Amino acid sequence: MDFVVGDLVTRVSHQHDIVFRICSIDDNTAILHGEDLRLEADAPLNDLEKVTERDKKTYRENEKEQVDYSFRLFRQDYQLMKEKRIYDVSEGYQQESYFQLPARVLHLDGDRHYLKKCIELYKRIGLQVHGSYILETDMPAEIGGLIKRIQPDVVVITGHDAYSKKRGDKNDLKAYRHSKYFVEAVREARRVESNLDQLVIFAGACQSHFQSIIRAGANFASSPSRINIHALDPVYITAKLAYTSFMDKVTVSDVLRNTLTGEKGLGGIETRGFLRTGMPYLGEE
Results as ranks from 00 to 15, higher is better:
123 K>R: 15
73 L>G: 09
97 S>G: 12
149 R>N: 13
57 K>H: 04
49 E>V: 15
135 L>K: 09
54 R>E: 14
129 V>T: 12
66 Q>M: 14
129 V>N: 00
155 V>L: 01
134 I>W: 14
148 K>Q: 11
159 G>E: 01
100 Q>F: 15
157 I>Y: 02
82 K>A: 14
158 T>G: 08
61 E>D: 06
135 L>C: 14
159 G>Y: 01
151 Q>G: 08
65 E>C: 03
129 V>A: 05
66 Q>D: 09
137 T>L: 05
120 E>N: 14
152 P>K: 10
111 D>K: 07
139 M>W: 05
84 K>Q: 03
97 S>C: 13
115 L>D: 03
96 E>A: 03
68 D>Y: 04
146 L>V: 03
133 Y>T: 05
96 E>V: 11
94 Q>L: 15
81 M>G: 13
148 K>M: 15
111 D>I: 07
74 F>M: 13
87 Y>G: 09
128 Q>V: 11
108 L>K: 07
159 G>P: 06
128 Q>L: 05
129 V>C: 01
52 T>W: 05
112 R>Q: 07
132 S>F: 08
152 P>A: 08
162 A>Y: 09
65 E>P: 09
123 K>I: 11
150 I>W: 00
64 K>F: 14
94 Q>W: 10
126 G>L: 10
126 G>A: 04
150 I>G: 07
82 K>R: 14
93 Y>L: 09
63 E>M: 11
86 I>Q: 13
115 L>C: 00
122 Y>T: 07
138 D>G: 00
141 A>V: 04
95 Q>D: 10
110 G>C: 09
95 Q>N: 13
68 D>N: 12
92 G>A: 08
142 E>R: 06
124 R>L: 09
146 L>S: 07
100 Q>Y: 00
146 L>M: 06
161 D>S: 12
160 H>C: 11
152 P>D: 08
95 Q>K: 12
158 T>E: 10
87 Y>M: 03
73 L>F: 04
98 Y>M: 15
64 K>N: 08
70 S>H: 05
128 Q>T: 03
79 Q>T: 15
120 E>I: 10
134 I>D: 06
126 G>V: 02
59 Y>V: 12
154 V>G: 12
67 V>D: 03
98 Y>H: 13
53 E>M: 11
148 K>C: 11
130 H>M: 07
83 E>Y: 12
153 D>S: 04
133 Y>I: 10
57 K>F: 01
139 M>S: 00
93 Y>H: 13
84 K>D: 08
80 L>T: 08
121 L>N: 02
140 P>Y: 04
136 E>L: 12
99 F>E: 05
103 A>W: 02
112 R>S: 11
71 F>D: 10
110 G>N: 11
122 Y>L: 08
91 E>N: 06
87 Y>T: 01
159 G>R: 01
86 I>R: 02
86 I>S: 08
149 R>V: 08
51 V>I: 14
63 E>N: 07
99 F>L: 06
48 L>M: 01
138 D>L: 02
93 Y>P: 02
60 R>M: 06
69 Y>V: 05
82 K>E: 14
97 S>R: 09
56 K>S: 14
116 K>L: 02
77 D>Y: 06
65 E>V: 13
162 A>L: 14
141 A>P: 13
76 Q>I: 11
127 L>G: 00
73 L>W: 05
141 A>C: 15
97 S>E: 15
